[in-house]
Amino acid sequence: MQIFVKGLTGKTTTLEVEPSDTIENVKAKIQDKTGLPPDQQRLIFAGKQLEDGRTLSDYNIQKESTLHIVWR
């Protein structure tokens, strides 16, 4: 499925993911596209910070959802 990651600059990155992907895995995909290391990424969805060990489905993140990224 496709999801979007929007940064503070307003730039949006598209990712191809599975609902079973962990947040850690998603951060690795973001690094592949942007070069930003996972330890500098904070992902937010529906006002919650996403924890590395959880999956996208744990947070009810579905296709075409938009996550927000904040740099540490």
Rank of each mutant, 00 (worst) to 15 (best):
N25V: 14
V5F: 05
L56P: 01
Q31G: 09
D52T: 06
E16I: 11
L67F: 03
P38A: 15
K29G: 02
I61L: 04
K27W: 05
D52V: 05
V5S: 01
I30L: 10
K11I: 13
Y59R: 00
V5H: 01
N25T: 15
M1N: 02
L67K: 00
K33E: 08
T22Y: 07
V5W: 02
T12E: 07
E16W: 15
V26E: 00
A46L: 12
D58R: 02
Y59M: 03
E18K: 14
D39E: 14
N25Q: 14
V5E: 01
W71P: 13
K48S: 09
E16L: 13
D32W: 12
Q49I: 15
E64W: 15
T9Q: 12
I3M: 02
P37H: 12
Q2P: 08
Y59F: 04
K11V: 13
T12F: 11
I44K: 05
V5D: 01
Q2K: 13
L8Y: 13
T14C: 07
Q41R: 03
V17N: 00
T22K: 08
K27D: 00
K11L: 13
S20P: 03
L56K: 00
E51I: 08
V17I: 04
L56Y: 00
E64Q: 09
G47P: 01
K63V: 07
K33W: 10
K6D: 05
Q31S: 12
D21W: 11
S65G: 06
E18W: 13
D21E: 09
Q62I: 13
D32K: 14
E64M: 11
Q40G: 09
P38H: 10
T13Q: 10
T22R: 08
V5A: 04
R42Y: 13
Q62R: 08
V17S: 02
M1L: 06
I61N: 00
S57T: 09
T34R: 04
T55D: 03
S65F: 07
T9H: 15
K6E: 08
R72D: 15
L67D: 00
Q2Y: 13
R42P: 02
D52A: 07
A28P: 01
K48P: 01
Q40W: 12
D21C: 05
R42Q: 13
D21P: 00
K63W: 07
L36N: 04
T66Q: 06
G35L: 04
N60Y: 06
N60G: 14
L67S: 01
T14F: 06
A46M: 14
I3H: 01
T14E: 07
D52Q: 05
I3A: 01
R72M: 14
I23A: 02
Y59N: 02
D32Q: 14
S20F: 12
G47Q: 04
I69M: 10
L56N: 00
L36C: 07
I3K: 00
V17W: 02
N60K: 07
S65A: 09
W71R: 12
G35W: 03
Q2A: 07
T34D: 03
W71A: 13
S65Y: 07
L67I: 15
E51Y: 06
G7R: 06
E24T: 07
L67V: 11
S20T: 13
I3G: 01
L50Q: 00
S20A: 09
T66V: 13
E16Q: 11
L50Y: 01
L15T: 01
T14S: 10
R54Y: 13
K48L: 11
E18Q: 07
D52K: 05
E64G: 15
